[in-house]
Design a protein around this nucleic acid. Structure first.
Lengths: 232, 232
DNA sequence: GTTGCTCGTCACAAAATTGTCACACAATAT
DNA sequence: ATATTGTGTGACAATTTTGTGACGAGCAAC
């Protein structure tokens, strides 16, 4: 893992502004890439995997909010921290921005110092774990890059939620988790769903895993579930 | 069986709202106390030590944020989780509220279910977990993280109650406990069950431990039981 | 619009756990 | 030895917890 400073994608349709921001960030030790619209941004995200996105509210074509919302919906990019940029007077949209999934919100004009400070804060909060390493366990293979799970090379057909659940389990083996903890970790702490929903997804995951691996998800009666490679 | 039930202090200047919240929480098994302003709240906190505070943003006199900030500054109350309540339209203050030290933030109106869910989440995060260290004694291993007991690597099949019983014994070895004490410690103080029930669970536990370890649970005639590694 | 997919919830089925009892057995007292 | 008291043990029904199929809402792609 190269720890050569975090990389930031700047998305704004005005080149001078991008440039200004880029200079400020580079002076602070960040690596920068730029995009003028949602399409370019998406391309950059895919192949250069920035650690954070500075996203202008106003964009030609797909608007910033819309783009943010879309990013947050896709598993592959959901974890990407986003800081929204907005011009003065558009502040009413703050809530809307945050609801779209932005992690923070800065009003133009802002000082470089402020920008860097917020950026640091967001990066600190966001999960530093680059989950890029495939995890494999007795024929079960989860590939975060392909965003896919295979059981003996046979692709598993599971929904995004089951994928996240399995990923969590595979990265937290041999340990019992309550339904509440799973909701926190897999669904995200601030959603409201019934605890029994966990059971249903466990069921779906087990079914998808098939006889070969379903036993790995063990029920811990009175507590929750556990992912274990050891025999029951 | 009833869980221990956490207590919640509801701070809001409008009595009907307090009442509504209280009812919802009580139905969910929480114990409630109320306060109409910061002063009352402080008094309640001192002498009734709630596990969590629901704090309205708007309060006569000392405002909610201010109060939260103050609580977080005092050592005695710094650890007390706070959930801020705010009316719709005050959402801009969200950041401010969280910065004041609130652990979560709910916008009125909210459903009782949502409230309870958030409350649970906050309590879960703030409540430090119990012992995380595995306990091992001559081939008998209790791992609280896995929530599992193994005897020479063979998992023991026991119910939640036997698990708690064994955990208690392993953390309180070499000492005799009466049935009443065990009921208190393992079942939780405020349940009513026959003392002889302890015998039955001891029996079940012994059976599960098998010949290898059953002798560790010794009968102290006329008194109760003891867990000991020493030979009888 | 339709279609196809995923998700959360529900109602019911299935399974495991629990507390209690009756009686067998063991230890002490009379 | 016999009575008395305390503990071990198997069985049982009630309750709790989990498994499972189905359904409708929501959403994206068409």
């Amino acid at each position: 893992m190269t720890k050569a400073g975090k990389s930031v994608l700047i998305v704004d349709d005005e080149a001078p502004i991008r440039e200004m921001i880029a200079v400020a960030l580079e002076m602070a030790g960040y690596e920068c890439m730029e995009a003028a619209n949602a399409q370019e941004a998406h391309a950059q995200i895919i192949d250069r995997k920035p650690d954070l996105i500075l996203l202008d509210w106003m964009l030609p074509g797909t608007s910033g909010v819309e783009f943010a919302r879309r990013l947050k919906r896709e598993d592959r990019t959901a974890e990407l921290p986003i800081i929204m940029l907005t011009a003065k007077g558009e502040e009413d949209n703050k809530v809307q921005g945050l609801e779209a999934g932005a992690d923070d919100y800065i009003t133009k004009p802002f000082s470089p110092r402020e920008l860097v400070a917020r950026l640091k804060a967001v990066l600190r909060r966001s999960t530093p774990q680059g989950i890029e390493e495939p995890i494999e366990v007795s024929g079960l293979l989860l590939d975060p890059v392909c965003h896919r799970v295979t059981s003996f090379d046979k692709p598993l057909d599971i929904g995004p939620t089951e994928y996240r659940l399995l990923q969590f389990f595979m990265t937290h083996q041999e340990r019992a988790y309550s339904r509440a903890q799973l909701l926190d970790q897999v669904w995200g702490g601030n959603v409201y769903v019934e605890e029994r929903t966990v059971d249903v997804h466990i069921r779906r995951l087990r079914k998808a895993l098939g006889e070969a691996h379903e036993h790995m998800i063990q029920t811990v009666r009175g507590t929750g579930y556990r992912f274990s490679t050891k025999v029951a």
